[in-house]
C-alpha cells in the first residue's frame, strides 16, 4: 500500500501521494540541470558557469544569446513536453487505456494533415515553406487542423453522452483517415517538400523563440489548475459508467471539460513544435510506474514529459553534430528503452 496524505485548502481537499510528489520535485531539479546543459550548446559553446552568468547578468556578453535564442528554445521544449504528457495522462485516464494518446482525439493527426497539405500545396521545389509561411502560417495551420480534427472526433463520438470506448473507436477511424491522407499528400509532393514536411511532422525545436513559448506557457498556466480540479473526478472515471454516476460525479460534464483541456494542451503544443511523437504516450506510463499509482499522476506526468523532451533535444543536437535531428525522433529513442526497462523491472 502506498501512503496517501490529504491536503485541505478552503474546503477543498486533495490526496497527496508522497511518492508522486517526490517524483515531481526530483524531476523538476533534473529538468533544471538538463535545461542548463542544453543552453550551453550553440555556435558559441559556453560552460555552465558562463550560462549562469549570462542568464542573470544583463550586462554580460552572452546575455542576448541566452535570453533571445537559447532560453526560449529550452523553455519551448520543456513546456511542450509537459503539455503533451499532461494531455496524454488525461486521455489515458478517460479512455482507461494505456495506448491512448492525443492522436486518438484527432489533434496531432489533424494538425499533421493541415501542415503537410500547406507545405505540399504551396511548396515549389524550393522555398515553399520559408518566410511568412514558416513563422506564422505553419503554427496557425497546425492549431486550426488540430482543433478541427478534435471537433470532428468529438462530434462523431457524441451520442446521448460520451462513452470512453466509443470515443476510442471513433478516434481510430478518424485518425486512420487523417494518417492516410497525410501519406497520400506525401506521395504527390515534390521530394524536397516531402522532406521538409517530414521534419515538421517529426517534431522539431529548431529556431523556436519567445513567440512559441508564450502560447504553451499560457495554456499550461490556465489548464494545469483546471486539470488538477478535474483530477478528483478522473480518479472516479476509471470505474464503470454506472459506478461513476452512483458516486455522484457529473460524468459527461467533467469528462467533456477534461477532454477539452487535453485537446487544447495537445493542439497548442503541436502548433509550437510539431507532433513530437511518443511523449504523450510514454510519459504518463513512465510517471505511473515511478510513482506507483493506479492512474497516471498528472503533475508527475507533466514533469516526466518535460524531462523526456529536454533530454531528447540535448541528444538530438549533440549526437550527430553538426547535423541536428528533429527532437521527435529522439524522444522515442530515449523514452522507449526506458519504458521497456520499467516494464522489465515490474516483473519482480
Amino acid at each position: 500500500m502506498t501512503t496517501v496524505l490529504a491536503l485541505r485548502v478552503a474546503g477543498l481537499s486533495w490526496r497527496v501521494r508522497p511518492r508522486a510528489a517526490a517524483v515531481t520535485l526530483g524531476g523538476l531539479l533534473l529538468l533544471g540541470v538538463l535545461m542548463a546543459l542544453n543552453m550551453r550548446i550553440g555556435d558559441i559553446q559556453m560552460s555552465l558557469a558562463e550560462v549562469a552568468r549570462a542568464t542573470f547578468d544583463t550586462a554580460s556578453a552572452g546575455h542576448f544569446v541566452i535570453m533571445d535564442l537559447r532560453l526560449p528554445r529550452a523553455l519551448t521544449g520543456a513546456l511542450v513536453g509537459a503539455a503533451l504528457a499532461l494531455s496524454g495522462a488525461i486521455i489515458q485516464s478517460i479512455a482507461r487505456n494505456p495506448l491512448a494518446s492525443p492522436e486518438i482525439l484527432g489533434v496531432t493527426t489533424g494538425a499533421s494533415v493541415a501542415v503537410v497539405a500547406g507545405v505540399v500545396v504551396s511548396g515549389s521545389a524550393y522555398g515553399g515553406a520559408s518566410g511568412l509561411l514558416s513563422t506564422l502560417g505553419i503554427p496557425a495551420l497546425a492549431l486550426a487542423g488540430g482543433l478541427v480534427g478534435a471537433m470532428i472526433v468529438y462530434t462523431l463520438a457524441w451520442r446521448r453522452g460520451l462513452d470512453g470506448y466509443r470515443l476510442v473507436l471513433v478516434g481510430i477511424g478518424v485518425a486512420a483517415v487523417f494518417t492516410n491522407v497525410k501519406f497520400w499528400l506525401l506521395t504527390i509532393g515534390d521530394v524536397n517538400d516531402t522532406s521538409r514536411a517530414m521534419v515538421w511532422i517529426s517534431g522539431s525545436l529548431n529556431g523556436r523563440g519567445w513567440e512559441h513559448v508564450r502560447p504553451v506557457g499560457v495554456a499550461l498556466a490556465v489548464l494545469i489548475p483546471l486539470a488538477l480540479l478535474g483530477a478528483r473526478s478522473l480518479d472516479a472515471l476509471r470505474f464503470g459508467d454506472d459506478t461513476i454516476t452512483g458516486l455522484g460525479v457529473r460524468m459527461n460534464l467533467s469528462r467533456a471539460l477534461l477532454i477539452l483541456a487535453a485537446v487544447l494542451l495537445a493542439a497548442v503544443a503541436t502548433a509550437s513544435a510539431g507532433p513530437i511523437a511518443f511523449v504523450a504516450l510514454a510519459a504518463p506510463q513512465i510517471a505511473l510506474r515511478l510513482a506507483r499509482c493506479a492512474q497516471p499522476p498528472l503533475l508527475s506526468s507533466a514533469v516526466v514529459g518535460a524531462l523526456l523532451t529536454t533530454g531528447a533535444d540535448l541528444i538530438a543536437r549533440t549526437a550527430f553534430s553538426p547535423v541536428e535531428l528533429p527532437v521527435g525522433i529522439v524522444t522515442a529513442v530515449l523514452g522507449a528503452p526506458y519504458l521497456i526497462h520499467l516494464i522489465w523491472r515490474a516483473r519482480t
Binding site: 521534419v199 517529426s202 511518443f278 506510463q285 524522444t331 519504458l339
Partner: peptide
C-alpha cells in the same frame, strides 16, 4: 498490457530510427 506497451515502445523506437535514416 505489458505485451501492448512493449510492442508500442519497440515500434516507436524502430520508427524513430527509420525516420532518422530517411531524413538523412
Amino acid at each position: 498490457v505489458t505485451l501492448a506497451l512493449a510492442g508500442t515502445a519497440v515500434s516507436a523506437f524502430l520508427y524513430a530510427l527509420t525516420s532518422a535514416i530517411v531524413l538523412l
